[in-house]
């Protein structure tokens, strides 16, 4: 664990590796870049402040990706390929290496893998967007909507946030993003209420392995990605 020690308002930056070999780093990108996100979007010059914050967030994500690729995978850094709007970043150099960068509010999650395809997603609390019927209809299949109705109302936001991160990470791993319908990505995240002691952002990493498997991990939450493997 890499602790920044700036108090409870700031998420510690943590690293780990999933059971299938995806290295990840998660934390507060505003701490990493010295940006106060809340302040950056207030007052005069709000537009340029927002644009500047987006640039710094992008830089932080790419810096973390570079660091993970070189320090954890031991690969030579060749840089990023040109951007494609709405698609995940691609690396130059070793084509076997894949990377995914996700963010929500001030939380940044970066995942890299030596082989296979990886997708990461994170959603910060309070998950209020998941109260919106229009979103539920567009992200959940008819069957998933039935299962959602069976959950206690108080458990639905987090369950939907988890389902979304799995669906989004899956589509990012495939490299399609939302050009493919998330309703067609099945998840069991709506089958039961998530432990109500769960707190913090919902996050998921999906790894399509070279052997054809699909491994879903929840960084810093499940047993497959212990921080202490790296520290």
């Amino acid at each position: 664990m890499i602790a920044h020690g700036r108090g409870a308002a700031f998420m510690e930056t943590s690293e780990g590796v999933t059971a299938s070999g995806v290295f990840w780093r998660m934390g507060d990108w505003t701490v990493a870049t010295g940006v106060d996100e809340a302040h950056s979007a207030a007052g005069s010059g709000e537009r340029s402040a927002r644009a500047g914050a987006l640039r710094r967030r992008r830089s932080a994500g790419r810096a973390w990706a570079r660091d993970l690729v070189t320090s954890r995978l031991g690969a030579v850094w060749a840089g990023f390929a040109a951007d494609a709007p709405g698609r995940k970043p691609r690396l130059l150099g070793d084509a076997r290496i894949d990377v995914s960068i996700a963010h929500s509010a001030s939380t940044l999650l970066v995942a890299v893998v030596a082989e296979g395809l990886v997708g990461a997603d994170v959603e910060e609390e309070p998950f209020d967007v998941f109260d919106r019927v229009a979103l539920i209809r567009r992200m959940c299949s008819a069957d998933e909507q039935v299962r959602l109705e069976r959950l206690p109302r108080t458990a639905r936001r987090r369950a939907l946030a988890r389902a979304w991160t799995i669906k989004e990470a899956t589509l990012k791993a495939r490299g399609t993003g939302l050009s493919k319908d998330p309703r067609r990505v099945p998840t069991d995240a709506l089958d039961r209420a998530i432990d109500d002691t769960a707190s913090g952002p919902e996050r998921a990493i999906v790894h399509f392995t070279v052997s054809g498997g699909c491994v879903v991990s929840f960084p810093a939450r499940d047993d497959s990605s212990p921080d202490d493997e790296l520290t």
Partner: peptide, 18 residues
């Protein structure tokens, strides 16, 4: 993108447009 319209909000907007 500067208005916070990430993927989850983009999908929400699609539902609202519908």
């Amino acid at each position: 993108a500067e208005l916070g319209l990430d993927s989850v909000y983009a999908l929400t907007l699609c539902g609202d447009i519908e």
